[in-house]
Design a protein around this nucleic acid. Sequence first.
DNA 1: CTAGGTGCCATGAACGCAAC
DNA 2: GTTGCGTTCATGGCACCTAG
Length: 371
Amino acid sequence: MSHQLPESLLGYWGKNRLDSTPQIGANHDLEAIQSWLNEYKDSPETLRSYKREAERLILWCWQQQGRALSDLNRQDIANYQIFLADPQPRSLWCGDKRPRTSPHWRPFQGGLSLASQKQTLTILKGLFNYLRDADYLRGNPLALIKSITKQTTPRKTKRYLEQADIALLFEQLPMQADNAKSHREWLRERTLLAFLYYLAPRASEVASCKMNDFFQRRGRWWWRVLGKGKKYAEIPVPDALLSYIQRYRSHLELSPLPEPNDDTPFIRSIAGTSGISANMVYRLSKKILLDAAAQIEHSEPEQASRLRTASTHWFRHTAITHLADQGVDLRLVSKTARHSKLETTAIYFHAEDDAWHNAINPSPTPLVEES
DNA sequence: CTAGGTGCCATGAACGCAAC
DNA sequence: GTTGCGTTCATGGCACCTAG
């Protein structure tokens, strides 16, 4: 990208440049952006998405505006948002997903939704704040925007499974596999299912989980995890999960319980000792759900449809919702979910809503099933 | 900010089969 | 037997969009 950019658009003399020596070693816009990106070198997902937004903006500056990043003002940013909603001409800006190196690669698939436009602006606001704070720019044209805030997330989550769904998924346990390989696959699926349901990990946390992330202290088993935002936590391991771990480890011809020095992957590839990626966690989760859906396709079409819609992250929501339904204290559910704010956990507490509704709207028949 | 969801493509091991 | 080559399968990784 950089080698194609004409020198006049690098922003050596951008209208928004500050004359004083910046805090970063950058002579022009691309170096300044590189410096910003470098701050995220330890967060690969964030880095990737920031890089994409920076590249889109640079390409737009170049192609549409013929000006540098450090020339942009509030009106340019407004125009950019309009452009994001519908990048024109489409033939130049939009195309199917392709490897970045492909000649058919395009910056967009199509126009961005409102939520994605706002997400883009939030990222760019961070970029311009950085450039301003580094004394590279005089000001931040995005700081003038009054409300980038996205619409608040729905107060109650819907993306979870019912008790009956989880029971169905676990019920397939007694099934016998017909050969050694499929037995191994099946055992891995059950272990993954138990992991997802009992400890509510994110897909990436499953992929990075090591055997000795399960450890014993004072006679009790705990799971340690470095989660989203590099937040460290230790979570109590339910006995039900521990028995799945034992079975899976025994099948792998390991001692039933994890050894403190065993830092090999927990969930493994079929072939050998290597672990699996987050993508694979997603695919295995979908397989578990689709297989179960197929079994009840005719008897319970509605349940089958729900199972087909679900994905890895649903198990996390499901685990949290079911803990809440069981009457576990909000603070303790919050600790298992590793939410930083109690309000986030409160989204999963539906029981009080039900009771409230029942009180306001008494019904001759019970609305809430006894369990 | 820092993920997850989802589709597509690349890769490399395993496999099958035929030519040598 | 082994060499070579096409196919298949499991998996990783990238890309774009969206959620929490």
